[in-house]
Write a protein that binds this DNA or RNA. Structure first.
Lengths: 143, 143
DNA sequence: ATAATAAAAGCATTTAAATACTTTTATTAT
DNA sequence: ATAATAAAAGTATTTAAATGCTTTTATTAT
């Protein structure tokens, strides 16, 4: 459903959220190492997130990437929209270019239920929620 | 969730199912044209389906691909298992290589619900069910 | 002002999926 | 038996995503 880069993006933002309390900024290398992803992929993707105002950045010494309290309270769908685009949640289950109630593929109705359920999940889960599970040792970003 | 080839496979099998009554066999070109897919991709993929006994084939003149009554009554998960492999329904929502109840990613529980719902859909929908919706003009294989 | 630091940006390479091409094998009708 | 047909199989190319590398720009501390 989501691209590898998008999954990496969600993990990176969760990591930044975990640094919110301390106010620390994080560099590309540090983030990539922690979430076990390619440094270059992470760099490109973080730029995308900055442009979409999902996270922030500062250049120069003491610079790095960081997140605000407001951004921490955003749902993860914001990350998905920024990285994979808005029509992730509109795609046909059988790959038809135009699949809707009026011209549908054979699994349209059932697939829509699943897809919508995933969308709701992405709309409801906040970055802070996911960050909490990691902080509490209930979930992990690698493995 | 599913590869393009797998989506193509489901459409191809539905097409073959629609030819079951008449007993006609269908060639690669005919199938590819009807479902609007690459002839070469369809050829390779049909071989995979034959090996997995999801469909049948016959070489030579009057040969082609066809489906039996028993095969028509199979669930579409058989097609998915054959083309994309069995662990489509085990994959982690955030791309962790090992994500389970004991070592989970931050969205594991919610994602599992969605994934399992999709799996159930694929286990319940028979080729014949999908074929019927197309025959009845309620659904399409192209567009 | 200068040097150091770190993100931003542009371009190149790699990888895997999809698509394309060619040859081989089996089968059927003549 | 032979020729025609169509799947099977093997190899090659293309495409898009991911990854890698290099240069540029902005910022901060000295």
């Amino acid at each position: 459903m989501l691209s590898l880069t998008c999954k990496t993006a969600i993990k990176a933002v969760i990591y930044l959220a975990s640094k919110f309390e301390s106010g620390e900024k994080s560099g590309i290398k540090e983030i990539a190492e922690f979430i076990d992803a390619s440094e270059h992929t992470v760099g490109k993707m973080l730029q995308t997130l900055v442009k979409a105002e999902v996270i922030n950045s500062a250049k120069g010494p003491t610079g790095g990437f960081f997140i605000t309290g407001k951004q921490k309270n955003q749902a993860i769908i914001k990350i998905i929209d920024a990285v994979d685009g808005k029509n992730v949640f509109e795609e046909c289950g059988l790959g038809l270019s135009k699949c809707s109630a009026t011209h549908q593929c054979p699994i349209h109705n059932d697939y829509k239920v699943v897809r919508d359920k995933f969308k709701t999940l992405c709309q409801q889960k906040k970055v802070s929620d996911l960050c909490d599970t990691v902080n509490d040792g209930l979930a992990y970003l690698v493995g």
